[in-house]
């Protein structure tokens, strides 16, 4: 199975300008958006799983990127969301810099391989400086998806 980030990420799961500026508030805003768009059934459980993960490790991976993630049965399938912050959010990134591009990944507990594959693909994609720059400058969810589609292999 070839997993494509551009196929898993839906335009409705993209927030071009997230309002919150603090990590937990950002996660809450993202979760509420996912619940409103019916990607997540149990928002409270999802939020708990993400917060638990955040307490264990820094999901701010540096270079202005954060990938909060969790395996939880609050979702029925692998789901992805993306949010962009103009001011940056403190995600305790290892390089000490705020995160501007936030990708959220969640999968059901029993979909471990799909989940790991998605995290790996996304991490590899976001290591490319040009992709990070294009994502920062994109004007619409469709443009975001096109950038991902063109750059994922």
């Amino acid at each position: 199975m070839v997993l494509k980030i551009s196929e898993v990420l839906k335009p409705e799961a993209i927030i071009m300008k997230i309002k919150s500026r603090e990590k937990i508030a950002v996660l809450k805003e993202l979760v509420a958006h996912m619940v409103a768009n019916e990607f997540v059934e149990d928002g409270e459980e999802f939020q708990k799983a993400l917060a638990k993960r955040e307490n264990l490790e820094s999901t701010g991976i540096g270079d202005g990127i954060a990938i909060p993630h969790a395996r939880t049965d609050a979702v029925k399938n692998l789901v992805l969301a993306f949010a962009r912050s103009e001011e940056g959010v403190e995600f305790s990134a290892i390089d000490g810099k705020p995160s501007y591009l936030i990708f959220l990944i969640a999968s059901p507990v029993d979909k471990k391989s799909e989940y790991i594959m998605a995290l790996a693909k996304l991490s590899r994609l976001l290591r490319k400086q040009v992709v990070r720059r294009l994502l920062k400058d994109a004007d619409s969810p469709d443009e975001i998806l096109n950038i991902i589609k063109k750059n994922e292999e």
Binding site: R53, L56, E57, S58, I61, R71, I94, K112, I116, M117, L119, A120, K121, S123, R124, R127
Partner: peptide, 22 residues
Amino acid sequence: WQSLYLIEDAADKTGVWTSLHL
């Protein structure tokens, strides 16, 4: 990356703090 995230997933169960790098 898959190796890194598999380790993180295993560490998560035991409560060990991790930071991944490539």
